[in-house]
Every structure is written in C-alpha cells, then in structure tokens.
C-alpha cells in the first residue's frame, strides 16, 4: 500500500570529529519512524548536497561543533540552490551562539537547535515542519 516515509540525511560538515550528537539525533529520528541516511564525519557541502539529491531526502540535519557554522551552513544552502534543490529543508544543531542564529536563518537554515534541547523537541519540530514532498 502506498505510503510516504520521511527521509532525512544526518551528517557532519567540516573538520570537527565529535559525532555523538549526530548519532543521538540519527537514533531519535529512527525511533520516530524516519529513514535516516547517515553520512558520517568530514563531509563537504558538495558531498552533502549530492548525497541528499541521490537519496531524495526531505530534510538535511547537520551537526556542527567546530565554530565554522557561519561558513558551512550558508555554503550548503547555496549549493542546494545551485542544484535547484532548495526545496530540501536544512536544519542544524550544535554549539552555535544565539547571535549567529538570525543570520543563519536568513541564509536559508530553517531551524537551529542548541545544546540542552531534548530529542522530543527536535522530532516534534520535524513532524510539524517537514512533510515528505508529494
């Protein structure tokens, strides 16, 4: 029987090697019934976008703890646009200062979660904001 299932890419752009947060999110998404494509560490924006297109995901969820979010996240969004794939939503989590959040949202990041956010809050946000494309 026909049924759309949400597909999410979870990955870590750039050079930081701390993937515990990304793994916890991947697990929470799995438990929420989503299909998670986990690409792991050290991904370039181009790799992330190419994988997202091939996997036909609805959402890209990136974890950044390196401080390079102001460079990497806008780069992912502009690469999505370049490929005509900006309909894929982009969210991020990690150590991201409050002051940087408005700029990132203006640069195409739909939502940003900072340390201490429970996985329920994040899953709820995905459920109410991301819908599998028809």
């Amino acid at each position: 029987m026909a049924e759309r299932r949400l597909r999410v890419l979870v990955g870590k752009p750039g050079l930081d090697g701390h993937d515990r947060g990304a793994k916890i999110i991947a697990r929470a998404f799995r438990d929420a019934g989503f299909e998670v494509i986990y690409t792991g560490l050290h991904q370039t924006p181009e790799q992330i976008v190419a994988a997202s297109i091939q996997e036909d995901v609805d959402l890209i969820a990136l974890s950044i703890l390196s401080g390079a979010h102001n460079t990497l996240l806008p780069a992912v969004y502009s690469t999505l646009k370049e490929k005509g794939a900006e309909d894929i939503m982009l969210m991020a989590g990690g150590v991201i200062p409050e002051d940087d959040i408005p700029g990132l949202k203006a640069a195409g990041v739909a939502e940003i979660f900072t340390p201490g956010t429970s996985t329920e809050v994040i899953v709820d946000w995905v459920r109410s904001n991301v819908h599998p494309r028809a």
Partner: peptide, 15 residues
C-alpha cells in the same frame, strides 16, 4: 524507522 549507514564508507564518490 531505519538508519542507513552504508554511505559513510562510500560518500567520497558522492560528487
């Protein structure tokens, strides 16, 4: 739900 993790090993070919 599922975690599809095979790509971790091969994503160097993504581009």
């Amino acid at each position: 739900g599922a975690i599809l993790g095979d790509r971790i090993r091969m994503n160097r070919h993504a581009e």
